[in-house]
Design a protein around this nucleic acid. Structure first.
Lengths: 124, 124
DNA sequence: AATAGTGGTAACCAAAAAGTAACTAATGGC
DNA sequence: GCCATTAGTTACTTTTTGGTTACCACTATT
């Protein structure tokens, strides 16, 4: 009787996508940049609980995987803009569906859907 | 000038979905079970590189999140069947799209799409 | 008694992800 | 000189995920 098994999970396209975006911070970053290009400092301000170290690393990985475009201008102080590539834009509808799924699957949970709050104070 | 920021990433529906399925093993488990219910041992055999400890834990988490149904039969030896809930079935089309995205986004990569290999030998 | 079948569990460890705090570079303005 | 701006970088630490190994329970069979 032949045995069946998965030979190499890393060769699986689904797993590959998850490896690329399935962590704590990348979905948020992609969501924020879906509204248009953004500078490092703005991303950092919009996600108050992420460290500069981690943000830098996440942006670098997304760039390496072809999802982000990093555009450095010859300016002082330094100015760097991050924007989504076409590859990433193609992923947005799927992210939207993942978001919608949670809203439907857990109706008892009041999700904010990555709500952006406008205020003049930053939490302690 | 008002400042904007994300107040709580964990309240975000997209992040919630990622927290639930966005790790190393759960996409594979969901994929395998999309073909129909399965027993613990079969899952373990089909994913040769996962430990029983981790498989147990992943199944328990998926069950707690409402994606898996665990059905224990009054039999000896123990017999337990795992199957997808409707909640999980609703997620399958999205997983499929995540898979398709990788195939399109990285055409130079030859994904196996969680290919199941039939053979009578298990790798060393 | 030993072995088999099945689905685990427990104790400990390794690797990866994320966090903390301090520092850097290159100007420009006071 | 000091302070400000911006986008990092570095060294170390903590937390989380995943792995290893041995063991368990309850029969049934040899």
């Amino acid at each position: 009787m032949a045995r069946k098994y998965i030979d190499n999970p890393n060769a699986c396209s689904l797993v590959h996508t998850m490896n690329i975006i399935g962590n704590k911070w990348k979905p948020i970053i992609l969501y924020l940049l879906s509204n248009g290009s953004m500078r490092f400092g703005m991303l950092n301000a919009l996600i108050p609980t992420i460290s500069k170290k981690v943000l830098t690393n996440q942006l670098k990985e997304l760039e390496n995987d072809g999802l982000l475009l990093r555009e450095a201008f010859a300016e002082i102080p330094p100015r760097v803009e991050y924007s989504l590539t076409e590859k990433a834009v193609g992923l947005l509808p799927v992210l939207r569906m993942l978001s919608d799924w949670a809203n439907e699957a857990y109706p008892e949970m009041d999700f904010e859907k990555c709500r952006i709050i406008e205020t003049d104070k930053k939490p302690a």
